[in-house]
Structure formats: C-alpha cells, structure tokens
C-alpha cells in the first residue's frame, strides 16, 4: 500500500539519465509514466533503492524524420492516440494506444516505459513488432538502434544492457493504401488483453495480397511475429474468410499461451484463430488496391 523508501533523482537529459543509472547500479530503476512500476512498488513487488525520473529528460512529441515516424520515449499514450502526426503516419499505433488501460493511465504512461517494461500483453510491443519498428537506446557506450523483433526477449525482459535507457521508438511511415488493424480480446473494458492481433496488409493492383505483417500478443513470453505464416497462405492470393481463417488456424497452432486468471491457455489459443482472422479481414478492408508503394 505504501512504497518502501528510495532515493530519487530527476534527469534533465538522456545522457544524465544514463550517468545516474550507471551510478545507481542494479538497485536503480527508471521512472517514466510510472503506471506499471509504481503499483508494483506500492505492492512491494518492486523495491528499488533509487528512482531515476526521466520525465524531464526529453520531449514527448512524435515527428516524421525521412520516411520514419520517430516517437520519443516520453510520448504519452494519450498523445499517441490524439497526435495528428501519428494518426497520419501510423494510425495503428494510435489505435493500439487507445486500448491501453484507462484515460489516467494513458495520460501518464509513455511508449518508452511500455517497451522497456516489455509486458507480453502490452499493446505497443505487439504493434511495434508488426510495424518492423526499432527502439533507440542510449547507454554508457553510446546510442544503438535495436529492431523491435530483437528487443523483446521474454517476460518483462528486453535487450537493454545495464545502464541503457530507451530514448525513442521509430517505425516506418505507413504508406497510404496500406491496410491495418489492431484488435484485442478483453473480458472488461480497459483490462489487459487475453489476445492481441496486429495486422498490416498491402494489396497489389489486382487486389491480391502483396505483403502481410501479422503479430499476436499476450499469448506468450513476447510478441509473436507470424508474418511468414501469414505470407505463406496469403501471398499473391486474395484475403477472404477462408484464407484469413486458414492463417488463423496456423497462428493458433503456432502459439501455446499459458493459463491466465481470466482465460485458460486453451481458450486463448482458440481465440488467436478468431482474432487473427478478424484482424486480417479488417486490415484488408482498409487496404487500397495498389497500396504497396
């Protein structure tokens, strides 16, 4: 109910945050939006000796940079949801953000915190893998960019090295005509997903599938990239009930979700088929012919 005592340091720049993190060692934790970390501290599941508050380390305004959308780590979920730049360049991110928690969580929660936390049920990690996004990190030995597909490793574990912080996330701008969908299965509005599916589809001039990206989340240790499985069925073919259902079946076979409080593993596995099919069809419905730029 009450966090145990800790020291607090506010970082006013990312390099300073890295320096503080190095000094703090293993007992130090980065505080961004705090919507996952602080409840864990209140329940004493996390007892860091030092909190490094990075809220002052940079800005939180997404922007376009040469064909990519750069989302600074401190971008709040509510900003993702509302930002005209994001809605224009990568609407699936805005959609995914809208599924996160409640309005208060979205006001404080940040994309940097979300990816560093690496909750397998996180909406943004699932979307970033589908988008072939990347995570910019800064550490003692400088900056590096890690592909989202490599960044999320297992439950609450990322490719971040000690002393590294997430400074931004970047994704390719979604070409006009590219269809997208983000769906999730929940038991109650605002809750963590039991199953997530993110799909991106490009159609060729004939309306056949030119390229498909498909990721499912919340059903394993990290987001599961099923783009190859989807491509094997859909590539150069039409996306309809039958083909989408076939991808759903294969997706279901490819995952093995554990039992959770609100859904057994078997149920969630079955639902992967449903949500993959629905996401593919929704994305295809949004896609324009010849959208594959």
């Amino acid at each position: 109910m009450y966090p145990s005592l800790f020291d607090y340091a506010g970082a006013t720049s990312w390099p300073q945050a890295v320096q503080l993190l190095q000094e703090g060692g293993e007992e130090a934790k980065v505080l961004a939006g705090g919507q996952s970390l602080v409840p864990m501290m209140a329940l004493r599941l996390a007892t860091p000796a030092l909190l490094i508050d990075v809220n002052g380390a940079g800005d939180g305004e997404p922007r376009r940079e040469s064909g990519r959308l750069v989302v600074p780590a401190l971008t709040r979920h509510a900003t993702l949801q509302r930002s005209v730049v994001v809605r224009d360049a990568c609407p699936i991110l805005a959609e995914a953000a809208s599924w996160i928690g409640n309005i208060r969580v979205r006001h404080r929660g940040t994309i940097g915190g979300s990816v560093a936390h690496a909750d397998p049920a996180g909406e943004l990690p699932c979307s970033l893998v589908a988008l072939e996004g990347a995570v910019r990190v800064l550490g003692p030995s400088g900056e590096r960019i890690i592909a989202a597909s490599n960044f999320f490793q297992t439950y609450f574990t990322t490719a971040l090295e000690p002393g590294e912080v997430v400074t931004a996330v970047e994704v390719p701008v979604i070409a006009s005509g590219r269809g997208w969908a983000f769906l999730e299965l929940i038991r109650r509005v605002g809750d963590f997903a039991l199953v997530e599916a993110a799909a991106l589809i490009d159609l060729d001039d004939a309306g056949q599938c030119a390229r498909v990206r498909l990721t499912v989340g919340a059903v394993g240790e990290r987001p599961v990239d099923l783009s190859d499985e989807a491509g094997a069925v859909l590539q150069n073919g039409s996306i309809d009930e039958a083909s989408a259902a076939e991808v759903g079946r294969r997706a279901s076979a490819a995952v093995d979700p554990p039992d959770a409080v609100h859904g057994s593993g078997a149920y969630r596995r079955e639902m992967v088929a449903v949500y993959v099919r629905r996401a593919l069809l929704a994305a295809a419905a949004r896609a324009g012919r010849g959208g594959a730029a």
Partner: peptide, 9 residues
Amino acid sequence: ESVNACLLF
C-alpha cells in the same frame, strides 16, 4: 489532465 494521484509521486 486526469491522473492517478496514487501512482504519481
């Protein structure tokens, strides 16, 4: 902006 006062130091 509405926030959770329980999750903000």
